[in-house]
């Protein structure tokens, strides 16, 4: 789920950046630092949408670095248990497949794939129904439900299922092509 929230961060800036473009420098550094990070509490910071305020800088003794408290608005993405997501399949193997929904990686175990789908090894490993009508392979788009998340310092890993109504492949570029 996406949230638009305000977060705060203390930015350290090297004195060489002080000058006319200080604010720009600060913001660019903030983006570099923050975007794409993940925290267990808020999830992934997807994008900074604006700066609320930049506080007064504080010069650190001995280093000449300056610390600015920066409040910024950002879009965060955090997956929840039970959430329905659309994701792109990135890897298929005999244990299931991995899919990505933005920065979140989701694993769908073969136990959580409908029983009628069988793993087909080969050049393009995939899961296919017995009649061949549905095929899950790399680059497929699938809709899945998250059944569990594990939050680490640097990533969120989810386990999903497509063994439910209205879940499964929603678009297969390979098939369309």
């Amino acid at each position: 789920m996406f949230f638009h929230i305000v977060l705060e961060r203390n930015m350290q800036l090297h004195p060489r950046f002080f000058g006319r473009n200080l604010r720009e420098n600060l913001v660019s550094k903030l983006m570099k630092d923050v975007e794409g990070t993940c925290s267990g509490r808020h999830g992934f910071v997807v994008a900074i949408t604006g700066i609320e305020s930049v506080g007064k800088g504080l010069i650190r003794d001995g280093t000449a670095f300056v610390t600015f408290p920066v409040k910024y608005q950002c879009v965060v993405f955090r997956p929840f248990k039970g959430e329905i997501l659309e994701a792109v399949v990135t890897l298929v193997n005999k244990m299931g497949f991995f899919a990505e929904a933005g920065p979140v990686q989701i694993f769908v175990s073969k136990h959580l794939i409908p029983d009628d789908m069988e793993f087909q090894a080969g050049d393009m490993p995939n899961y296919t129904t017995s009649d061949g009508s549905v095929k899950i392979q790399k680059e497929c788009e699938v809709r899945l439900k998250i059944i569990g998340t594990r939050v680490d310092a640097t990533e969120i890993f989810c386990v999903g299922t497509i063994k439910d109504d209205f879940l499964g492949v929603i678009n297969d570029p390979a098939a369309a092509a």
Binding site: M31, K32, D33, V34, E35, G36, T37, V46, A47, P103
Partner: peptide
């Protein structure tokens, strides 16, 4: 940097 790239180059 796109968000992804910024992140990719090891945040922090």
């Amino acid at each position: 940097p796109t968000p992804g790239s910024g992140w990719a180059s090891t945040p922090g």
